[in-house]
């Protein structure tokens, strides 16, 4: 009897905590479907009737289509470059024994814990010098640099576990070093690559500090900047801000819905950061 009571109590605590963890998002999701007038009348009401038209409104009238497209292009490009550059470096560091190997690894690895503040001012200066300030290309390059250490770190530990015999066999068959990478390492590492792709996508999608320093043009804002801007301009329009938040959250939720285990794996592997 006490066991059942104990179990019930435990379940109650867990449910309460779930409400606490998820509550803010559910609240925002409900507000995203209600007009600001409805919200001011009752802040915790249900979205009845649901105003789905607010999504196209935010998308077309409040520039969210621009923010979304900017975020998407920066994140997709940066993640593509990161994956290839990171995989090449990780493959090289885990596969070849050469003087300076561990030194290069240590250099890149130690950058994982660098606080962004140590580079942000000089990056600003550098990008201004080269005309890449206030440009999505500049932001993309910076994003590649920011996530590169973590990517190399995760991939290197995976590549290091691929048995060397496989490479010897490939070399016997006359593969060049270059095609060994593309035809042996890369396909085998697909699960690890998927982890880094998903992890980098989420982290960069949410990135704020570099974007706020390096981008000022309205037409070049990424989603986090756009939301912040909208929040500053339309402080009272709670309903519309909530819709904007949902537009930023939905891609993340979709990725999480399909790849929850991969994502949890990536975030916890990236826990060193």
């Amino acid at each position: 009897m006490t066991a059942i009571l104990g179990r019930a109590f435990l379940l109650l605590v867990l449910t309460l905590y779930t409400a606490f963890a998820a509550g803010p998002f559910i609240w925002a999701a409900m507000m995203s479907l209600r007009t600001t007038t409805e919200i001011s009348n009752s802040h915790f009401g249900l979205p009845l009737p649901a105003h789905w038209e607010k999504f196209p409104q935010a998308w077309f009238n409040s520039n969210y289509s621009v923010y979304f497209a900017n975020s998407a292009s920066v994140v997709v490009t940066a993640v593509a470059i990161l994956t290839i550059v990171g995989a090449m470096a990780a493959h090289c560091l885990s596969r070849y024994r050469f003087a300076g190997n561990r030194f290069v690894y240590f250099l890149i690895f130690s950058a994982i814990i660098f606080p962004p503040q140590i580079t942000i001012i000089a990056l600003f200066q550098t990008l201004v010098n080269y005309g890449l300030y206030n440009s999505l290309v500049g932001l993309t390059l910076v994003y590649v640099a920011v996530q590169l250490p973590l990517t190399v770190y995760i991939l290197e530990s995976f590549f290091a576990r691929i048995p060397g015999d496989l490479f010897d066999a490939a070399r016997m068959d006359g593969y060049s070093e270059w095609s060994i990478f593309w035809k042996v390492s890369f396909p085998i590492a697909l699960p690890a690559l998927a982890t880094t792709v998903i992890l980098n996508t989420i982290l960069l999608w949410n990135e704020f500090l570099y974007a706020v320093v390096l981008i000022t043009d309205e037409a070049k804002r990424t989603l986090p900047l756009g939301i912040q801007r909208f929040m500053g301009d339309q402080l009272e329009d709670v309903g519309m801000i909530a819709t904007g938040l949902m537009i930023a959250i939905i891609p993340v939720v979709l990725i999480y819905a399909f790849f929850s285990e991969k994502l949890i794996q990536g975030m916890t592997a990236g826990a060193v950061k």
Binding site: I84, V85, G86, M88, A89, V104, L107, I108, A111, F114, I118, T119, I120, I121, A122, L123, T126, L141, V142, V144, A145, L148, P149, V152
Partner: peptide
């Protein structure tokens, strides 16, 4: 490629 990115956008800014 990794070293170029690292040098230009991490080491040099530091």
């Amino acid at each position: 490629p990794a070293l170029v990115v690292y040098t230009a956008l991490t080491a040099y800014p530091v």
